[in-house]
């Protein structure tokens, strides 16, 4: 088990080394970068919007239901909702969700290219296939993730705001006051930095599993599942490390 894990890690490092070389044609790289930005980044906005609005609303309801002590002010609802969103939801949980969408998409796309010999075709032409296929994906997803994170923060807090208007369980003014109280700007940066690491994990690990698929459609599906599971575990692991290092 340990030997196998070390071997996989070694292969991953060699794969990354291959990926991170200078592209053969920058023009082609930028063309693919823009394509991936659209596919992996902009196409994820609807999912992020839906998840964020609902989770923001649910967080606000939960805070209202659970903060029952008369010693705590009502604005604590907005404040705690904001802290949950900024510290964990907008980075870790969002990236776990994106690992499912983006990770499986990358692994199955590259895996299918492998089993249909498209990667062999690139190699025979003399193209560094890992660099050509994977580097634009990693670059696009890592560079776009801050946008998704900030968008997630805004829409989640807006979800809480909407639930205040719809249900009237907390006054909107108190909610907004809570959002502004004891705000620590560093938490926004903390979420963005964490998400950059998670985005790298999702895109590179999924590409790795897709790139080394052997077999047919069944194996592509298996690789896609393994990519999502491994990315999720690594995200959770790195979340612990980042929280310890950056918040303590």
């Amino acid at each position: 088990m340990l030997k196998k894990s070390l071997e996989s890690f070694g292969r991953y490092c060699i794969f990354m080394w291959k990926c991170m070389s200078v592209p053969d044609k920058w023009r082609e790289f930028f063309r693919r970068y823009v394509q991936e930005l659209l596919r992996l980044g902009i196409d994820s906005i609807p999912l992020v919007l839906i998840v964020s609005v609902f989770i923001g609303a649910v967080c606000t309801i939960q805070m209202k239901l659970n903060i029952t002590s008369p010693l705590l002010p009502k604005y604590a609802i907005g404040m705690t909702t904001r802290e949950i969103i900024l510290l964990e939801f907008s980075s870790s949980i969002l990236c776990l969700i994106l690992a499912g969408k983006v990770g499986s998409s990358i692994a199955s796309e590259i895996g299918t290219m492998r089993v249909t010999e498209q990667i062999d075709a690139l190699e025979i032409m003399g193209v560094n296939s890992a660099n050509f296929l994977v580097f634009p994906k990693i670059a696009a997803f890592v560079s776009y993730i801050p946008v998704l994170v900030v968008f997630c923060m805004v829409t989640s807090l807006f979800g809480g705001y909407l639930i205040c208007i719809v249900t009237g369980m907390v006054s909107v003014d108190v909610y907004i006051y809570g959002l502004q109280t004891m705000f620590t700007p560093w938490y926004v940066w903390y979420a963005i930095i964490k998400s950059l690491i998670f985005a790298f994990i999702i895109s590179s690990v999924s590409s790795f599993f897709g790139y080394y698929v052997e077999g047919g459609a069944l194996q592509v599906g298996t690789a896609s599942t393994r990519a999502v599971v491994t990315s999720s575990i690594l995200i959770l692991l790195m979340d612990v490390v980042c929280t310890k290092v950056m918040l303590q």
Binding site: D24, K25, E28, Q35, T112, M113, T116, E117, Q118, D120, A121, I124, M125, G126, V127
Partner: peptide, 27 residues
């Protein structure tokens, strides 16, 4: 070297023209 694969190995995301132009663009 040019190679024709058993399953053709055309790039799914490119059109016929895009596939034929690919090696020209790269090399």
């Amino acid at each position: 070297i040019g190679m024709l694969f058993q399953g053709s190995a055309l790039f799914d995301s490119e059109t016929v023209l895009g596939n034929v132009m690919f090696p020209l663009k790269m090399f």
